[in-house]
């Protein structure tokens, strides 16, 4: 625990000093994340102790610094680089029971969804899936409420990022860390075959 905190802090400072923590003008985002990550580490540590005594683990939401490639990908795909953390909400479990079907709900609860002020789109991207893109949702004022639920695959423990573009030109983001115990893809290597139903994967 004592070692972990300074390491995280150094990592964060280093990235900012070298400029790679801020490739697309995301200083505000990076600053927020640094503190969050430290907090997450503390809560995480407590959770680890709690886990030993089999107490249900409290919810942890942390968003470490965005990888550079992801920032570049988002800049190209969404045409925006100025993402501020907030407004968009990503609801996912901290620990997925199976990577094959992880419940996910994205929303911008405070958007009035009027012609003048509505959510244009929400985009979900993962950091360590074989293909990072998950879904892109497009809304209109007639959507009434920018809230979508789906079930997605997560190949392994990773960050899930969520970006929202508004009609007023602002861009918002959030991220969550989701632990996956069983790799989704590894378990689907052998596909079911109705004629010869010996198939498997691990456990």
């Amino acid at each position: 625990m004592k070692r972990l905190l300074p390491e995280l802090a150094t990592e964060h400072r280093g990235s900012e000093a070298e400029g790679c923590g801020e490739p697309f003008g995301m200083r505000r985002f990076a600053g927020l994340v640094g503190r969050r990550q430290a907090l997450g580490a503390i809560v995480g540590g407590t959770a680890a102790i709690a886990a030993l005594t089999a107490v249900p683990i409290p919810a942890i939401s942390s968003s470490p610094n965005m990888p550079e490639w992801l920032a570049a990908l988002i800049a190209v795909r969404l045409g925006s680089t100025e993402f501020v953390e907030g407004r968009v909400v990503l609801e996912m479990p901290d620990r997925a029971d199976t990577g094959l079907s992880v419940p996910m709900t994205v929303s911008v609860p405070d958007s009035p969804m009027t012609d003048a002020d509505h959510v244009r789109s929400i985009h979900v991207v993962t950091t360590r899936n074989p293909q990072p893109l998950v879904t892109d949702y497009y809304f209109t004022p007639a959507s009434g409420l920018a809230r979508v639920s789906q079930r997605i695959r997560l190949a392994r423990t990773q960050q899930v990022y969520c970006f929202a573009l508004m009609s007023d030109g602002t861009s918002w983001m959030t991220a969550r860390h989701v632990s996956v115990a069983l790799g989704a893809c590894a378990d689907e290597i052998f596909l079911p075959d109705a004629k010869q139903p010996v198939d498997g994967g691990t456990s």
């Binding site: 378990d187 079911p192 139903p197 198939d199």
Partner: peptide
């Protein structure tokens, strides 16, 4: 979920046999 389909009890037995590297029996 890993089969992505329905399965009978016998299919599960075959799967279990497979999982311990045993010879599965016929359905």
């Amino acid at each position: 979920l890993i089969w992505r389909s329905m399965g009978s009890r016998h299919r599960m037995f075959r799967w279990c046999n497979w999982a311990v590297r045993a010879e599965p029996r016929e359905l």
